[in-house]
Amino acid sequence: MGVYQFKRTQTFQQPIETLWDFISDPKNLKKITPEYMGFDITSENLPDQMYQGMIVSYNVSPLFGIKTTWVTEITHVKHQEYFVDEQRVGPYKLWHHQHFLRATPSGTEMEDIVTYQPPMGLMGSFMNKVIIAQKLEEIFAHRHKMMNELFGK
């Protein structure tokens, strides 16, 4: 029944505006998600930039190739600084993902802070130790790699 959190930070020699334009477009999430997850956006007519209150739905296979619907709400947005997405329907009991951008002397720092709770109480805590935490590490390592390929270090 644990609640877990992990953080990832990346620095780019790009201005905040460039990175914000990419990460605030919900359609770009597919570009940085591992292909094996079968990630498909099912929302129609998404704008090029998210806004507070926006609902985005996806089909995704996070574990064992099992397709699931994932619905997130963008709950907070501060232009070119941060946004927060929270799961409304999906595989987790709790999913709260903060995305921050900060100007640095060498460009822009991007930080992800994910707070999550697996479903199924004690069984979910066990599954987190066995596979979920490792899978999230793998997914965010892939995102890190893809962002480096798109925007350099």
Score class of each variant (00 low, 15 high):
residue 1 M to C: 11
residue 2 G to N: 11
residue 2 G to Y: 07
residue 3 V to A: 07
residue 6 F to N: 13
residue 6 F to Q: 13
residue 17 E to S: 14
residue 19 L to K: 12
residue 21 D to Y: 00
residue 22 F to E: 04
residue 23 I to R: 06
residue 24 S to G: 00
residue 24 S to I: 00
residue 24 S to L: 00
residue 28 N to W: 01
residue 31 K to H: 05
residue 31 K to P: 05
residue 34 P to C: 06
residue 34 P to I: 05
residue 35 E to N: 13
residue 35 E to M: 07
residue 39 F to H: 07
residue 42 T to Q: 10
residue 43 S to K: 05
residue 44 E to C: 06
residue 50 M to T: 00
residue 52 Q to S: 12
residue 54 M to L: 14
residue 55 I to G: 03
residue 58 Y to M: 11
residue 59 N to W: 02
residue 60 V to T: 14
residue 60 V to Y: 04
residue 63 L to F: 13
residue 64 F to L: 15
residue 64 F to A: 15
residue 66 I to L: 15
residue 66 I to N: 13
residue 67 K to E: 11
residue 68 T to N: 08
residue 68 T to A: 12
residue 70 W to E: 03
residue 70 W to Y: 04
residue 70 W to A: 03
residue 71 V to G: 02
residue 72 T to I: 06
residue 73 E to M: 01
residue 75 T to S: 15
residue 80 Q to S: 05
residue 80 Q to M: 11
residue 81 E to F: 01
residue 83 F to N: 00
residue 84 V to Q: 01
residue 84 V to R: 01
residue 84 V to G: 02
residue 87 Q to W: 04
residue 89 V to S: 07
residue 89 V to N: 08
residue 89 V to P: 01
residue 89 V to H: 07
residue 92 Y to Q: 04
residue 94 L to N: 11
residue 98 Q to S: 09
residue 99 H to D: 02
residue 100 F to C: 09
residue 102 R to I: 05
residue 104 T to P: 08
residue 108 T to F: 03
residue 111 E to H: 06
residue 111 E to S: 12
residue 112 D to A: 04
residue 114 V to T: 08
residue 116 Y to T: 08
residue 116 Y to K: 10
residue 126 F to G: 09
residue 127 M to C: 08
residue 127 M to Q: 07
residue 128 N to H: 10
residue 131 I to D: 12
residue 133 A to N: 10
residue 134 Q to M: 13
residue 135 K to F: 03
residue 136 L to G: 08
residue 136 L to W: 13
residue 137 E to I: 03
residue 139 I to Q: 14
residue 139 I to M: 15
residue 140 F to I: 05
residue 140 F to L: 10
residue 140 F to S: 07
residue 141 A to M: 11
residue 141 A to C: 12
residue 147 M to V: 04
residue 147 M to Y: 11
residue 149 E to Y: 04
residue 153 K to P: 05
